[in-house]
Design a protein around this nucleic acid. Structure first.
Lengths: 212, 212
DNA sequence: CCCCGCATCAACCGATCGGCCGATGGGGCC
DNA sequence: GGCCCCATCGGCCGATCGGTTGATGCGGGG
């Protein structure tokens, strides 16, 4: 059954030269995987994907300057190149995972993962099959059981202002609504995040990376 | 003037296999730099440093499980091996930089740095000379000019409780002090962080990584 | 010994928050 | 057309917060 496939063609996208070098070195030892390009930013990744038509794009979510990994993923998936995006990042927070999947990522791996898992995931992604790191899979499962904190757009707006340390009156003015509305939203945010103070809400928001 | 030196002996410490592979690959191209070992945790790094006596330890500050990079640095510097610790990490917040330097790090580089800078920094570190990434250097300079938010231990305690979303009464009980004292500390924390609400304080604390 | 930073506490007061009730209107879905 | 989610608003009230002023004690450094 071991038909000789053409190699899987990969594009790397990570803002850290060290990480790109690491992936290049690791993947270089696999004969059936070929790195056809490297991008240090989201914009570059989108352009290179269109030009090089890789099978799989290895994508970091934190890209420093410019558009982030989620937006980059969205654009690549929406493009005509038909590339699969395999997210390879450091964090496994619910918000990151959810946003990446919604953006159309084919898989989600953690950088702490063993190299063999990475190779396997790349081969899976090339065929459109999904692979998740064990911790990520656990979180996805947990989420299925308990449909947790999904904030609405407006609630995120409120939370953003709250994180600036603004009072209700200032939040109201910033968003062109009344104080009463701000308080209503805040109450629902407390419920969803499982807290009962503004400080607690900000804490959870930062830890869960609920804000850009 | 190009005397033939013995190669600089390096120990890598990073919990991500991908990063270790990247550093190994990058450093492999430099004849005068030799990687003598790799550690995936702080404990391992301390043990390997004692055994292998490298000239320089490349240290990440975020190490997942176990002791963190700062504590690892402290132990290595306190050890008898006489190794220089060169911090190589992702973040350049004031708190991280300060803690690393106080722990005895010889240099502080960002992973986004160009490989050539990394090589140069390693050679400098081997001789005990300090190298800082430009953004890091800027922050250190800025700190010199404006002696900014240095929280006392007690203030950090208060801030920690605040981040849990606790009210003044609960913080007081948790730390065995009166509410009045809590309020006094909070007032000074607001001053130092440049905010005037608890939510703002938590926000700054999380962003500046002032809490463990 | 004096000064200063740090931690501790007290009393006061106006502003704000958080929780509670209920209400309206728009948009998507079946 | 009904249903539900979302966003919007109002009023009420007790609890909490934030700012202020002032005070005590302890330890280190000059």
């Amino acid at each position: 059954m071991t038909t000789s496939h053409p190699p899987v063609r990969i594009l790397l996208c990570d803002d850290h030269a060290v990480v790109r070098a690491g992936l290049l070195a690791l993947l270089g030892s696999e004969p059936d995987i070929e790195v056809v390009g490297e991008a240090g930013s989201g914009e570059e990744a989108v352009a290179l994907t269109a030009r090089l038509t890789p099978d799989v794009v290895l994508m970091d979510l934190q890209l420093g300057e410019g558009i982030d990994g989620v937006e980059t993923t969205r654009r690549i998936v929406a493009g005509t190149a038909g590339a699969h995006v395999l997210v390879l990042t450091t964090y496994d927070t619910d918000a990151d995972i959810t946003r990446a999947i919604e953006a159309g990522a084919t898989g989600y791996l953690l950088k702490a993962e063993r190299p063999e898992e990475l190779f396997a995931a790349i081969r899976s992604a090339a065929q459109g099959r999904t692979t998740l790191s064990p911790p990520v899979a656990s979180r996805v499962m947990a989420r299925m059981r308990a449909p947790l904190p999904t904030l609405t757009d407006r609630e995120r707006d409120i939370l953003g202002q709250l994180s600036q340390g603004l009072g209700n009156r200032d939040i109201a003015r910033a968003l062109f609504i009344s104080e009463a509305t701000v308080k209503t939203h805040l109450g629902r945010i407390y419920d969803k995040l499982g807290v009962d103070t503004r400080a607690g809400a900000v804490s959870v928001a930062k830890e869960q990376r609920l804000l850009p």
